[in-house]
Design a protein around this nucleic acid. Structure first.
Length: 447
RNA sequence: GGCGCUAUCGUCAAGUGGUUAAGACACCGCCCUUUCACGGCGGGUUCGUGGGUUCAAAUCCCGCUAGCGUCACCA
């Protein structure tokens, strides 16, 4: 059997859409699973679309996602160049051969001279797609498409055929948007007498809008590029893990996969033919699973730049509190902002029906707690916990009734990473007592 | 509009003629609890529709409908 060689062939747009990333991932997984090669080829035949540094951007993104090409512009390989704009003579040669053979013709227009492919007027063309089966399209549907543009550059429909053949690509993995142009490619292979590669057309990644409508994932659905997601604080491995499952099923109930496991388990028959909707909820869940699997130290390390400046001795402790409550690292800054800066007083926050807390009750709780805490010299979690518990017990009210106003007074938030005792410890003695005193004063004033 | 692809819970999906139609996320309820979170338990009219084929259809065939894609000197 021929060696498996797949390719990822993006145009250099400086943007890595999730759908493209998934295409690259599947091509990579399949090649690696089969012990083959994965090629990166840049399709920059549209001069108007050229974006500077886009090639480096693509390479950097793939590296971050741990999708490593065996061959590419900067990865070596014996089938280069891997940038189409550097292969112009090759396309010209083959286009002229087609003209000589009667399968293409020159066409002159105000732009200059171009070469068009001559399509059969009758009959039909069929190709086999590994996930869709046979697909047949009447030749009458096919236009005499441009092969070589008047600027000397080839069109996608021509260049991809020449390159895939010359680079010995065995399986073409790309989006379904290419299904209807595949017969044109197949005809080209026939004209040249080449054996076409196997075709695998992937269903698109969709997004769901507020109004419930589903359409191809785009900006209106939120972050849609791999890089956007990384910036929001999703681990690259979480993104690839999630995306791998969007359209591919391992046939087991396993959902968390390392790249090595993905390579080991990947199989073409798990690919689905229907579009999949990108679900941020599930991504969040998976992200949380990765965090929970980390040690506090590991999490502190990846969260470090989101936590920012913080008492070094308490940093890992803070991270341990954040770890089980965060879906993406980007949530951290706003979640811990209160540690550095007390939000403005808001009497409304103190009112909580479930815990039977009112503004008045809050003052009644906070005052004695200040007394008790002022006497605590050993400001440790254990000591603080013991004091508060003892107070709760002696006061005869429920724990929640005590904790609720304390949390608000200490953080100004209904939701905090960790409970009251944790916050007390994090804030330290001085800040804690000051906040409680300020809150008590403000509470009394508002009565 | 022509052509093509697709169609199982809200979402990802298993399923390849006979199942109580898995599992996960989300959601809802209850429990636990130091709020939130975590954890535990439980819940939900899911096979687009109409015809066939068959003893038997989510599974096979046809029509319809819907969604998507494509009809460029873009990829």
């Amino acid at each position: 059997m021929k060696k498996v060689r797949t390719r990822f062939a993006p145009s250099p747009t400086g943007y890595m859409h999730i759908g493209n990333l998934r295409t690259a991932l599947y091509a990579y997984l399949f090649a690696k699973h089969e012990g083959g090669d994965f090629i990166l080829r840049i399709e920059d035949t549209d001069r108007a679309r050229y974006v500077p540094d886009a090639v480096e951007f693509i390479e950097k993104t793939l590296a971050t996602a741990k999708i490593i090409p065996d061959e590419g512009p900067h990865h070596g390989g014996n089938f280069g160049p891997y940038v189409q704009s550097e292969r112009m003579e090759i396309y010209k040669k083959y286009a002229e051969q087609l003209v000589a053979d009667g399968h293409a013709y020159y066409e002159e227009s105000e732009n200059g001279v171009a070469i068009r492919q001559k399509m059969p007027k009758t009959g039909e063309t069929t190709f086999f797609d590994l996930i869709h089966g046979n697909i047949t399209i009447a030749n009458a549907e096919l236009e005499d498409q441009i092969l070589l543009k008047s600027d000397g550059l080839p069109t996608y429909n021509f260049a991809n055929v020449i390159d895939d053949h010359l680079m010995e690509v065995s399986h073409i993995i790309r989006g379904t948007e290419f299904i209807t142009s595949t017969p044109k490619h197949v005809l080209l292979y026939e004209f040249f007498g080449w054996e076409p590669p196997a075709f695998i057309h992937l269903a698109p990644v969709m997004g769901k809008a507020e109004d419930g409508t589903v359409s191809k994932l785009s900006k209106r659905h939120g972050a849609t590029s791999f890089n956007d997601l990384v910036e929001m604080g999703y681990l690259p491995e979480v993104i690839t893990n999630y995306v791998a499952l969007l359209g591919w099923n391992p046939k087991t109930n396993q959902e968390i996969f390392s790249m090595a496991e993905l390579i080991e388990k990947f199989s073409l028959d798990g690919l689905s033919k229907s579009p999949a909707v990108f679900d941020y909820n599930k991504l969040d869940w998976m992200s949380g699973e990765y965090f929970k699997a980390m040690t506090d130290e590991e999490f502190a390390a990846v969260a470090d730049k989101f936590i920012g400046e913080f008492d070094a001795a308490k940093k890992v402790y803070l991270a341990s509190l954040l770890k089980p409550r965060v879906a993406k690292l980007g949530e951290i800054p706003s979640a811990i902002k209160f540690l550095r800066e007390m939000p403005p007083f808001d009497a409304e926050l103190y009112v909580n029906k479930r815990n039977k807390v009112t503004v008045e009750k809050s003052a009644e709780i906070i005052a004695p707690v200040i007394e008790i805490l002022s006497g605590v010299e050993d400001w440790t979690f254990e000591a603080l916990h013991e004091k508060i518990s003892a107070f709760t017990e002696s006061s005869g009210v429920k724990t929640g009734t005590v904790m609720w106003p304390l949390r608000i007074a200490l953080s100004g938030q209904k939701v905090t990473p960790g409970g009251v005792v944790e916050i007390l410890y994090l804030l330290g003695r001085e800040t804690s007592l000051k906040r409680l005193a300020d809150a008590l004063a403000a509470l009394r004033k508002s009565l």
